[in-house]
Write a protein that binds this DNA or RNA. Structure first.
Lengths: 340, 340
DNA sequence: CTGTTAGCGCGTTCAC
DNA sequence: GTGAACGCGCTAACAG
């Protein structure tokens, strides 16, 4: 039924080893035999079985991609870009969607990628224990989003600089009561929310603004979370006149909450996001732009390079992509009549 | 270095086949031996090689998922849901992102999933030739989005009914010049845009409104495309007072174009979308809601069922999920002073 | 219940 | 330049 290498060998009147050599472009086969074998193989519709070939050679031509929340714009976009790079290079992608703690645990305990992939790309840098598990696979590792990790090539941005530019923008407009919507309580342990928060604290301090813990709320990196967080901030005794949301999705949730409270953006409250979501321009959101697809593609390329040149020195542990503040319509000086 | 089944067998003082049986929960192993083997395997950190196991058994415990544009909200969400179902059932997912014609061609000519997957889920029903290629794999097939295909279990919605409810809503509000932004020119051949367009034509006819081809524009299912399409519609001699966009992303693009033209939604122009994108509520978009994650999960479940009960009759060729019109703030009666 | 014997389909030595 | 033999790690069929 399914045609194997011996079928091709028989049909071409050669041995299986010659077919193997010919089809993979290895030396030691005369050009005419090679051409003839290629023709026969094409005609028979022969395709080498990956299982058999990786069992024999140890190479799988498959990359394991570990991603949290593929459905979110950010990770979906990173994944899309990375997959394109991999498949263009002839690699297949084994996808592991590790959003829930359950799925995460299942993955890291059974490690289904073992002996199945040539390398692993993690779209969110895993915690130390998980990192160790991945390292035990003995394959090249790369990642996006998060701090540096031993054994990992990570592509990211300068989160502190990005967040600083956002908060500083609000300070420069004259805001003094600046709230922050963060994603601190996520199930995952990563440095991004920490770095962005530190930048927020630093800029406030540098501007001589006293930090008010009541002005911080958790939005869990979702639209709904952002909405809840903003609602909570508005319920405080002295609501902020401006808000820095650690992601555009949370910023959009905040905008929804504000609208529901009949507050106008930016007249009553200014909002800055982070990411430059594809719909940020639609809602006129001022935000910190970062190359999202670019990070996925770059991480994929760096991983492939390690595969191609195993002896070459590992790329720098941490590659930084450029960011920039994009001014749109959700930020303005504070309203002299006050937020209410 | 890497521990194999014989290592476990030796350490446990049994044969390799017993280890295999024990670890996979097959009958014919005493409970105490099974427990002892499990302990030894765990202690050694043994995990069966998928390549070897699928080579020997023919089963791969892997599902091939073919998706266009993973980065888009719709497909990302469908993929996310499907992956969760698969991985919860112990299956891995091989992802093929077939957005570009190039990637598509590469995939369907070399068919890298051959001998590598137990089943295939296509998030967008492929064209007839591609369908035939998939059928040649000889594995169960399922899909979302698109018309019925022989050999395919497809989960979808009633596109005509959905589009009809959207356009009829505009008609009922009193609109007579109703534009449509479609996604006709995509590289893919699928029935969705055709069905939605037909519904648009039907409702116009039923309302006694003459169809004006100048009121149709292509938005390619993207935000930018929607913006361009709306801009084109506004440039016509008699612009529409309402627009039906075949996707929320195009609707949001249209809203951006309107805002740039200093036109107000819905006072100057009403807009209806399709999908109920996660951000539709943020921008107050009236739209046709469909269970996006639900379709992915359902298609995945139907596929798994075929795998579990190969002899059972195939599920209905076409499963229809419910839809409903969600009224928000982008639609209103036409402005008596006219659109300009 | 358990061990032995054969492959699964291919890549990789070796010989020639 | 080409073929024969072996092994990758595992599962399945057959003995016992």
């Amino acid at each position: 039924m399914t045609v194997s290498i011996t079928d091709v060998a028989r049909a071409a009147g050669v041995s299986a080893s010659t077919v193997s050599r010919a089809l993979r472009g290895r030396p030691g086969v005369s050009e005419e035999v090679r051409a003839q074998i290629a023709a026969v193989a094409a005609q028979l519709g022969y395709i080498a079985s990956r299982s058999a070939s990786s069992l024999a050679s140890g190479r799988t031509y498959t990359i394991g991609v570990v991603a949290p929340y593929i459905g979110r714009w950010f990770f979906g976009t990173v994944l899309d870009a990375a997959e394109q790079v991999f498949s263009a290079a002839g690699y297949d992608v084994l996808l592991y969607n590790l959003g829930s703690p359950d799925a995460r645990k299942r993955f890291f305990t059974s490690l289904p990628v073992r002996k199945r992939v040539d390398a692993v790309l993690s779209l969110l840098i895993p915690d130390p224990a998980e990192t160790a598990a991945l390292r035990s696979l003995g394959v090249p590792l790369a990642g996006t989003v998060g701090g540096a990790r031993d054994g990992f090539t990570v592509v990211g941005i300068d989160d502190r600089a990005g967040a600083e530019s956002a908060v500083r923008h609000l300070v420069n407009l004259g805001h003094r009561r600046i709230g922050m919507i963060s994603g601190a309580s996520g199930p995952l342990q990563w440095t991004t929310p920490i770095d962005r928060r530190q930048a927020y604290l630093d800029v406030l301090a540098e501007a001589g603004i006293e930090h008010d813990p009541a002005l911080e709320a958790d939005g869990g990196y979702t639209v709904e979370g952002g909405e809840r967080a903003m609602t909570a901030l508005l319920a405080t005794s002295r609501p902020p006149t401006a808000v820095f949301a650690q992601s555009d999705e949370m910023a959009m949730g905040a905008m929804r909450a504000l609208r529901r409270h009949r507050l106008t953006v930016p007249d009553d409250v200014s909002v800055v996001g982070f990411d430059d979501h594809e719909l940020a321009e639609v809602v006129g959101l001022t935000t910190v732009s970062q190359p999202v697809a670019g990070q996925g593609a770059e991480a994929a390329r760096l991983l492939l390079r390690q595969l191609d040149e195993p002896d070459a020195e590992r790329p720098a542990d941490k590659v930084r992509m450029p960011i920039r503040l994009v001014l749109r319509e959700t930020t303005a000086p504070p309203n002299p009549r006050g937020p209410q």
